[in-house]
Nucleic acid binder design. Structure first.
Length: 511
DNA sequence: TCTGGGGTCCTAGGACCC
DNA sequence: TCTGGGGTCCTAGGACCC
């Protein structure tokens, strides 16, 4: 709590969808839904136009399609969002060294620590300038909350949406919060909300009135006490930059439940490899391996095993995950599998060896086999039979499961819906749909007029996938476009996987 | 309507040690 | 010989957030 509103919370408006609209002029002003396109996909972000149809985050995609059948449905492109996010974070870092990112599109900034504001007027000026800078550099809008604490700054940005700024004057917190729903407070989700409602509390004022003892009795020590303080508008949490990750995990929901025990085991192996890849990319190792299984009925369980020391050896993680799998009953079908590592240490296996060698310890019995990236097994995965999306079924081809390295990569995998392409003659565009060895491209780019559509053969040598373009043309002296740097393998993987799980390539955008 | 993927934090019981 | 309490680690699950 401070007496001047110098904590800033920035939240980009409908970030993924807005970035896609900026990249694809024909989608501006139209409903756009970004999320998983497979039969079990959910909505990541809906544009404000799509929200008017009732579409919102975390909604099953099938439901979204019923509500907004004419919206454009796109798979997320994290390389684009990451690049825009880096531009935004760079602008925030000019305000203060104390920037705490919460996700790609959200962050706290301590304006006071940065010397960029020390009272209401200067905070307001900094916030408005930031919003203008973000629009100039990225072409997107963000909403800003300013207050004397993190909680209130965040509530402020929520109230400011879309494309606004709200400043909450210190001293007015309790009056402002009193009539609001308990669900406004961070940490109060559906379960806690129900719990409180059954106890007769629906507003923040109700919580303040109930008192700390009552809330602790109801919700437990930590949760009850912190909620009581928040209800009074008290929040001392500092803005902290650079928090080390505490776990790394990967998981996959399958388009169709897995029944074959052998198949389940090979998927666990692949997930273990992917998990270790990410672990190593972060220069970390971990001691506890966690297996997650979601069964056909959505019941979810985890099994974990703590090793004698941290590892980043894919073989070790695979074996541990495999052992854990032994203790899980998978009859009835498996909907999701996940492999994670916690208890992270800052050194890699290589460092351990160096240390061990220096100590002349005999511990170096486990060779860190450099597995490298295993070729993903048939990318068709569970698509093919029983896929709900009729277009996906039509495009999945006959039988599926052809040789992985065959030259005949299906068009929908070489050219995932929504991704950028370049044609030697027609220039920049994006994949509107693909399948049956054809690719349909809309030729337009950020800043251009809405473009026209043309269809090509997927093996057309003049057509190739390209990196996302900056949403705003680069200006001399302006911050550079991070996407232009060479991508790491893990980055390029994540986008193509998103495209793969999208499966159908049915990024339908109406002309 | 039929439920993603990546995380964080908390609770609770049992083992183990002092 | 029997009993007590506290601290830490491990495991499993749940709530929550974006």
């Amino acid at each position: 709590m401070r007496s001047a509103p110098t904590i800033l919370h920035l939240d980009m408006d409908a970030f993924f969808a807005a970035a896609e609209q900026a990249a694809k002029p024909s989608l501006r002003g139209k409903p756009v839904v970004v999320g998983g396109l497979g039969p079990r996909g959910v909505v990541s972000t809906a544009s404000y136009e799509a929200r008017r149809f009732g579409v919102h985050s975390a909604m099953p995609m099938a439901q979204a399609r019923r509500l907004a059948p004419n919206a454009a449905y796109l798979v997320p492109r994290f390389s684009l969002y990451r690049a825009v996010s880096e531009q935004v974070m760079e602008l925030l870092s000019r305000l203060s060294p104390l920037v705490e990112p919460l996700s790609l599109d959200e962050a706290f900034v301590d304006l006071e620590a940065g010397g960029s504001a020390d009272d209401t007027a200067s905070a307001l000026a900094a916030g408005e300038r930031l919003r203008a800078d973000i629009r100039a550099v990225t072409g997107l809008s963000g909403s800003v909350g300013l207050a004397g604490s993190k909680m209130l700054a965040k509530i402020g940005s929520e109230q400011a949406k879309p494309d606004g700024l709200v400043l909450i004057e210190p001293g007015t917190e309790r009056a402002l919060l009193g009539p609001m729903s308990v669900r406004t407070l961070p940490g109060v989700g559906p379960a806690t909300g129900d719990h409180l409602r059954r106890a007769g509390m629906t507003t923040v004022a109700d919580l303040a009135e109930a008192g700390e003892d009552e809330l602790v009795r109801l919700l437990g020590r930590a949760h009850g006490a912190s909620l009581y303080r928040m209800a009074l508008g008290l929040d001392d949490r500092a803005v902290v930059s650079e928090r080390d990750a505490k776990s790394v995990s990967v998981e996959d929901t399958f388009d169709v439940d897995l029944h074959d025990r052998v198949r389940v085991r090979t998927e666990v192996d692949r997930l273990a490899d992917r998990c270790v890849e990410r672990l190593r990319a972060a220069g970390r190792s971990g001691r506890t391996v966690v297996l997650k299984v979601r069964r056909y009925d959505f019941s979810t369980l985890t099994r974990s095993e703590t090793l004698r020391g941290p590892t980043d050896d894919p073989g070790v993680v695979r074996e541990a995950a495999g052992r854990l799998l032994e203790s899980v009953d998978t009859t009835g079908g498996v909907r999701l599998l996940g492999v994670g590592v916690t208890g992270l240490a800052d050194f890699t296996q290589e460092d351990l060896f160096a240390q061990a060698a220096a100590d002349e310890s005999a511990a170096a019995s486990h060779a860190s086999a450099d597995e490298g990236a295993r070729e993903p097994v048939s990318a068709e995965r569970a698509v093919g039979e029983g896929a709900a999306d009729s277009s996906a079924a039509a495009w999945a081809g006959s039988g599926g499961g052809g040789p992985v390295e065959a030259p005949e990569v299906p068009a929908e995998r070489r050219f995932p819906a929504g991704h950028d392409v370049r044609h030697r003659e027609f220039g920049a565009g994006w994949v509107q749909g693909s399948g049956l060895r054809r690719v349909t491209v809309r030729f337009e780019e950020p800043g251009s007029a809405p473009g026209r559509v043309r269809t090509f053969w997927a093996d057309d040598p003049d057509l190739e996938l390209s990196e996302p373009l900056p949403l705003v043309p680069a200006v001399a002296g302006q911050s550079s476009w991070p996407a232009s740097r060479p991508k790491s393998r893990s980055e390029s993987r994540s986008d193509s996987e998103a495209g793969r799980s999208g499966g159908s390539g049915s990024g339908r955008a109406r002309p």
